[in-house]
Write a protein that binds this DNA or RNA. Structure first.
Length: 478
RNA sequence: GCGGUUGUAGCUCAGCUGGUUAGAGCACUCCCCUGUCACGGGAGGGGUCGUGGGUUCAAAUCCCAUCAACCGCGCCA
């Protein structure tokens, strides 16, 4: 067995990143990373070493003191390697790959950690491997260059978004994760309260109410990279836990909100994906009616060539109906109960007239056939919100019980406001050209919402059940 | 909740009109190899064929149930 050295015996300060080796030709360097492959030719041993910036071939010559240790190292072992950067002999150069014209002549190999045989090889893009196995060993999967690139792009996109909103005078404000159940909409994930027996928190489906309350609080412009939770079945573009780019502004119209978010997506593309081509800019706008007539869809894919991976066809869909009938024949909102009607239909809402023809101030942003975001101007008066709930058949008691806090906030002097939210993961998925959303979520869940890496959900302990005051209907605890 | 597809070695798969001891490639272990880069050559280890039940002299193979994964529908204010 090879000895594993403690990091304190290694000087990491002189480490050179693999992408920078090209500027260290004929110099002695120290490189840290993982062994991807060893080609042992008896006296001459080649090793490919990988870090987050690339890969380099090292060569252990017959006279090297590292011969013995080079025989023992295996894929995915963590190494610190000291050696000299050489230009390869002309006949051994591979100009088409990174560091193909140089190699590292290895003098010393320090094993920082060993690794058991990996569950799968990580020399491909991974798409051929059973996804459950990939998710179970996500730490291996994420070492692939493709996923490393995705992680980095995810980071860069978040920073770009932060910078964009910040320079446009938005404040980044975080809102609670433990909150109140939402009466309508998707199912909530619930969290039992220990201090309040029989009561629950819910995880937010979105920060919708908090961000409106921030407008009531005098915040001029808010944004948040917000984690959201919806206990619904998944899809290729939907996960139970996902990230939303959430924003809200006061004293604005639809036009203002759309303009700022249009500028954001166009900036994201030009900064992070300069090779991609936005089909139409400014982004075209279609009414819901036009869309349904022309494309039979409210999220049309208007790309000219759907096989072109670099084509990005954004479009806005506007003028959505505000209400639709449920199966039971009752009116319900199409998007969001807090959305305001367009100016021409304010009276119709207040008087509950011509309900099916009322148009909301809703705007959705669509990209290549996916809805990547949506928003609206909100009802900022108490009377308007109450009128919406009345159309939906809510009693005054129910409105007061479920939305009394919102009515209080609106009635306390809330400015006109509106906002937007992007599905961050879905947007990243499309920009990265990935086939499903799990590829861009670092620790994704399976289709049945299981985390196969951490083994969640899991049975609680008896102590946890007692603390949370829970008795399961079918008690499977042993 | 519903429909479709899939489940065989660590990974990717073949075998499935029932019939000796279930195969291949990669990975893994050992040996050989001085210019490889998907290195090459040789030897070897590794399997309750997702799980449970049934039919049969005999089941990876046929039937039923069940679990899981993926895709889609319902659902997703």
């Amino acid at each position: 067995m090879t000895n594993v050295e403690t990091p304190s015996n290694v000087d990491f300060k002189d480490r050179v990143l693999i992408k920078d080796l090209v500027s260290h030709v004929d110099k002695n360097v120290s490189v840290c990373g993982w062994l991807s492959v060893r080609r042992d030719q008896g006296k001459l041993i080649f090793v490919d070493i990988r870090d987050h910036t690339g890969s380099v071939q090292g060569v252990v010559l017959p006279e090297s003191k590292s011969q013995e240790i080079a025989k023992t190292i295996r894929p995915e072992w963590v190494l610190a390697v000291v050696g000299k950067v050489h230009t390869r002999p002309e006949r051994n150069q591979k100009k088409e790959i990174l560091n193909g014209t140089l190699e590292l002549e290895i003098e010393k190999i320090v094993v920082l950690n060993q690794a058991h045989t990996p569950a799968f090889e990580i020399d491909s893009d991974g798409k051929e491997i059973n996804e459950e196995v990939r998710l179970e060993h996500r730490y291996l999967d994420l070492r692939r260059p493709r996923l490393q690139n995705t992680l980095k792009k995810r980071h860069e996109m978040m920073q770009c978004i932060r910078a964009f909103y910040t320079k446009n005078d938005f404040w980044e404000i975080d809102t609670p994760i433990l909150t109140n159940p939402t009466p309508e909409g998707s199912r909530d994930f619930v969290v039992p309260s220990r201090l309040h027996p029989g009561n629950i928190y819910a995880l937010p489906q979105s920060p919708q109410q908090y961000k409106q309350i921030l407008m009531a609080s005098g915040v001029p412009r808010y944004f948040q990279i917000a984690r959201c939770f919806r206990d619904e079945d998944t899809r290729g573009d939907r996960q139970p836990e996902f990230t939303q780019i959430d924003m809200e502004m006061s004293f604005v119209t639809e036009e203002d909100v759309m303009r700022v978010n249009e500028a954001l997506v166009l900036e994201l593309v030009s900064v992070l994906y300069p090779n991609k081509k936005v089909s139409l800019s400014p982004i075209p706008r279609y009414t819901y009616a036009e869309c349904m007539e022309k494309y039979k869809s409210d999220k049309p894919d208007i790309r000219v060539n759907k096989n072109n991976p670099d084509e990005l066809a954004f479009c806005w869909v506007i003028k959505f109906p505000m209400f639709e009938k449920t199966d039971k024949g009752e009116w319900t909102f199409t998007h969001n109960p807090f959305s305001a009607p367009v100016t021409e239909h304010i009276e119709d809402v207040l008087q509950a007239k011509n309900i099916k023809d009322i148009i909301a101030t809703q705007y959705d942003l669509v990209l290549n056939g996916y809805e990547i975001g949506g928003g609206s101007i909100r009802s900022h008066t108490k009377e308007m919100l109450v009128a919406v709930f009345h159309i939906m058949g809510y009693s005054d008691e129910r409105i007061e019980k479920e939305f009394g806090h919102m009515l209080q906030a609106l009635g306390s002097g809330t400015p006109p406001h509106g906002g937007f939210a992007f599905g961050f993961d879905r947007l990243l998925m499309i920009l990265q050209g990935e086939p499903n959303i799990r590829e861009v979520i670092p620790f994704a869940k399976t289709g049945e919402g299981r985390d196969v890496l951490m083994h969640a959900p899991a049975q609680p302990t008896v102590e946890q059940l007692i603390d949370a005051h829970i008795t399961f209907k079918k008690n499977k605890i042993e």
